[in-house]
């Protein structure tokens, strides 16, 4: 067995530090300083810790770090630097979609995951896409409207 666990993090090859059973959220926040990832519940219910693994949204608070070996992990830190990421940020910012903001990074990651497979989602698809991201402030509607207004971004959906 290898003693080194490699994975791709925001486009860079990295080595996983410590025990593979550690929660991925702890590794990303504490070892890599990726604090866009928030901990809201620690039980995979609230979605504040959402990240992308192989392009799909996953709750990092209930994922053992070892599960991402040889896989691709993306967080909002890299997503926000892309064209579509910027559109998501603007969609949330301009339409009243942000209040306390604690759920918002996870929300943005779920929206990115949704738009990669469905570039022009209707209202129901958007609501379905963010149904694992609990927000206690906004009631979701302004977020949904903001995402519905995003223009399709051509590009790499892999």
């Amino acid at each position: 067995m290898k003693n080194e666990i490699r994975f791709s993090l925001n486009g860079k090859e990295e080595t996983l530090p410590g025990d593979p059973r550690r929660r991925l959220i702890d590794v990303l926040r504490e070892d890599f300083g990726l604090t866009s990832i928030k901990e809201g519940c620690g039980e995979g219910e609230c979605g504040a810790c959402s990240i992308l693994v192989d392009g799909r949204v996953i709750d990092s608070c209930i994922l053992p770090a070892g599960a991402v070996e040889d896989r691709t992990v993306e967080t909002l830190e890299s997503i926000r630097e892309t064209e579509r990421g910027e559109k998501i940020v603007q969609a949330l910012t301009r339409g009243g979609g942000v209040q306390c903001g604690f759920c918002i990074p996870g929300m943005a990651v779920s929206i990115e995951s949704l738009l990669r497979t469905n570039p022009r989602p209707d209202e129901h698809a958007i609501r379905e896409g963010i149904s694992g991201n609990l927000c206690r402030c906004t009631g979701y509607q302004q977020i949904v409207e903001g995402v519905a207004a995003i223009e399709h971004v051509e590009g790499d959906n892999s």
Binding site: R29, T35, S36, I37, K38, E39, L76, E77, R80, I88, V89, L92, T93, R94, G96, G97, V98, G101, F102, I104, P105, A108
Partner: peptide
């Protein structure tokens, strides 16, 4: 008249540091 919230962009980019951050 609606303006852009002063804290929204930083929050949407995940740059706002809450206590745990």
């Amino acid at each position: 008249k609606t303006v852009e919230r002063v804290d929204a962009r930083e929050k949407a980019r995940g740059e706002t540091r809450y206590l745990a951050d």
